[in-house]
């Protein structure tokens, strides 16, 4: 042990103490750096057009792929569908996640807390694709729901392969993320605040509206941004539960890369997706602040 400490002392002298926080950032910066390099390559590809006689890309740069993307109504359709889906999923997910997280944080019963935690983490062990296929089994024409409806004489309903099915699948997928982001924010609200509100005559709804929700705002914003961005870029749920007719932007990008061999156009759509996502998140941050994503105290709080 002493020898180990000796080696460590040589490799990591005390003088390096001030550098430690920065050195600990190196892995994260490396990962982000790799993503940036990838994005630069994609940006480069987006400026090259495909020659369909040789299936090679042009040596010259041009904005043709962007012109094409922005002149096709299809692009706007999928961007609108993705954005609208992301907003709807975010709102529904937060509405469902809040009571779940609140219950998990505030319950006096260890058993209930454990049950809620298990129910929260279980879906993480099952991949998104498997979960989507699970919904195919449950919601299919011969699935459990339609079987149950059949028992009371209702003809099978088409519950799959439409926009609501995609939204449903995404909400189910995003819920654990939202709960996990919300729980720390709710834990940080002292229970005494709620008790104080009650002692001053507020009923539970007034307490929720005027005390808990405002104080949970950083958690709601943080989880909202995470759910929004994950939904905006999702691929599997629209592909599997949408029946091929409810594509999001990621599905259109996939098609260009892997179906039509046009990586240039796919790259242009990728850049548009990144720009759209960044713009939406930027607007959210400017409007609501960074919430729990900001981590440290704000300047006002410091003062």
């Amino acid at each position: 042990m002493d020898a180990l400490e000796g080696v460590f002392a040589v490799a990591w002298p005390k003088g390096g103490g001030k550098l430690t926080p920065y050195l600990l950032l190196v892995p994260a910066i490396s990962v982000v750096g790799l993503l940036v390099i990838g994005l630069v390559y994609i940006g480069d590809s987006s400026l090259r057009t495909l020659d369909r006689t040789t299936f090679l890309f042009s040596e010259n740069y041009s904005l043709e792929n962007y012109r094409r993307a922005l002149s096709e109504g299809f692009t706007y359709t999928i961007i609108w569908r993705s954005l609208f889906g992301a907003f709807v999923v975010t709102i529904i997910t937060l509405i469902l996640a809040f009571p779940y997280a609140y219950m998990m944080v505030r319950t006096r019963s260890a058993l209930v807390r454990k049950a809620l935690l298990i129910a929260l983490f279980l879906p993480f062990f099952i991949g998104q694709v498997v979960r989507a296929y699970g919904w195919l089994i449950i919601l299919g024409n011969q699935g459990i729901i339609n079987d149950a409806l059949g028992l009371i004489g209702i003809e099978p309903l088409r519950l799959l392969f439409n926009y609501p099915a995609v939204i449903f699948g995404l909400v189910q997928y995003m819920l654990p993320f939202a709960v996990l982001m919300l729980a720390p924010a709710l834990t940080a609200i002292p229970e005494e605040m709620e008790a104080a509100a009650g002692s001053l005559g507020a009923d539970w709804f007034q307490t929720l509206l005027h005390v808990v929700l405002p104080m949970a705002k950083p958690g709601l914003i943080g989880s909202g941004i995470v759910v929004l961005t994950l939904t905006l870029t999702d691929f599997a749920m629209p592909a599997i539960l949408g029946g091929g007719t409810q594509d999001f932007i990621a599905n259109a990008i996939y098609d260009q890369f892997f179906r039509t061999s046009d990586q240039g156009f796919g790259s242009a759509l990728t850049i548009i997706l990144v720009a759209t996502g960044s713009l939406v998140v930027g607007i959210a941050l400017a409007t609501f602040g960074a919430g729990t994503l900001a981590l440290g105290k704000s300047e006002n709080e410091v003062r």
């Binding site: 369909r52 299809f74 359709t77 007719t245 259109a252 039509t260």
Partner: peptide, 18 residues
């Protein structure tokens, strides 16, 4: 087919996704 398949795929998808 080689020269035009991609545009046919795109057009079909545009109609179906519209």
């Amino acid at each position: 087919q080689v020269e035009h398949e991609s545009e046919w795929f795109s057009r079909f998808k545009q109609i179906m996704q519209g």
